[in-house]
Write a protein that binds this DNA or RNA. Sequence first.
DNA 1: CAATATACGGAATCCTCTCTCCGCTTGTCA
DNA 2: TGACAAGCGGAGAGAGGATTCCGTATATTG
Lengths: 193, 193
Amino acid sequence: MKPSAAPAERPLRADARRNRERILAAAKTAFAEAGVHAQMEDVARRAGVGVGTVYRHFPTKEALIGELLAEKFRLLLQGAREALDVEDPWEAFAGTLRRNAELMAADAAVQDALMRVEADWSHAEEARQELKATFAIVIDRAKAAGVVRDDFTIDDVPMLMCGLCSTMAAGPPGEPFDWRRHLEFILDAVRAR
Amino acid sequence: MKPSAAPAERPLRADARRNRERILAAAKTAFAEAGVHAQMEDVARRAGVGVGTVYRHFPTKEALIGELLAEKFRLLLQGAREALDVEDPWEAFAGTLRRNAELMAADAAVQDALMRVEADWSHAEEARQELKATFAIVIDRAKAAGVVRDDFTIDDVPMLMCGLCSTMAAGPPGEPFDWRRHLEFILDAVRAR
DNA sequence: CAATATACGGAATCCTCTCTCCGCTTGTCA
DNA sequence: TGACAAGCGGAGAGAGGATTCCGTATATTG
C-alpha cells in the first residue's frame, strides 16, 4: 500500500539540516502568532535565512504549514495516548480535551487551518487517523462507564473542537472570548445526565 | 449625544438610488455565497454596473460588508423581538437560537465576519446592542422559569454562536459538519438540569 | 430644451504577497 | 587541499484584487 517513502534520500548537508530546523522553529512561532497570515519573509527573517532557502526546504507555504499541522497532530495524538492510562474514564476523556485544547490555543495557525482549507493536510493525515482511533477508545470507555452520553460519537469531536478553536481566535477586539468556559459548556453537554 | 446624521443630504438621483439597491442586492447574494472572498467585480457584474459605481456608493469593501452585516443583525434582532411574545420560556429561548442560526447559516459572509475582524462593524453596532438587550430579557425569563442554567449569561451567546458559525463553514471538504447537531449540543449544555 | 451637477464605466494603477532564478558560497570527499 | 555538488540569498517576476481616475452619459432644474 505504501511505497518506500524515499528511494535514496542522501543525507542533508550539515548546514542545510541546521537551516531546516531553524526554519521550522521560526515558522512555528511566526504562524503561532499571526496565523496563516504570517508571511514567508517573516519566517525567513526570523530564521536568519533568505526566502529562497525557505523555499528550498518547503516547496510552498501550504506545505510548510502542513508540516506544522502534522507536528501539532502528533502532539494531540500523544495526549490521547496518555489518556489510555488514566483510570477514571471521565477524567481520561475530559482531561484530554482540556489538555489538547490548550495545545490548540497556543497556535493561531492551527486554528486557522482547522477552520479553512488552506493547508496541506496530507502530512497530518496519519496522526489524525491514529488520533481518531485512539480517542475513540477513550470515548468508548467513557460511554461504557456511563459518564458520556450514548449518542456521542468520535465524529462529534472535530466539529466541537472546530467551534471551540474559532472562539479562541475571535471575539470583540481587545476582550477575547473565554474559550475555557466554552469548553466547559461542551463537556457539560457531552456528559451523561 | 447623537449629532444630526447628515447636515443636508440631498436626495440621490433616481438612477443612483436604483443602482444602490441593485448593488446591495447583488452584494447580498455574492457574499452570502462566497463569504468575504467574493470580489468587488463580482458584485458589480451581478448588479449590472461598473466597479466605479460600486465604489461611488460604498467607499470600501469593508464598508459594503459592514452594511450587509448591519442588515443581518436587524434580522436577528427581529427574531429576538418575536421571541418576547412566545409563551413558553424555553421555546422562546431555544426557538430563537434555532431560527437565528438558520439565518446565519444562509450567509457565509456573516460567518466570516463573525470570526475575523475584517468588516466595519460600526453600522451594525446599534442593532447589536439592541439584540443583546432584547435577548437578555428572553434569557432572564428562561432563567426565572428554571429552564436555563443560572450561570448562563447573555455574553455567552456571541461566544457560542461564533463557535457554531465556524462549524457551518468548516468541516472536511465535501462533508460539512452537521451544525444543527452542534446547536443541539449547545442547547443541552445550557438547559438547566 | 439648454445648462449643469450627478453618476457611470472600466481600463489603469497600486499593493501585497508568493514563488522563481541564477550567480555566489560553502560543506564534503578523495 | 582542490574539485564540485549542494546550498544560499534576495532581487524581481507574477498574480490576484482593491481602489482610483477621468472622459462620457444622463437626471434635474429653470
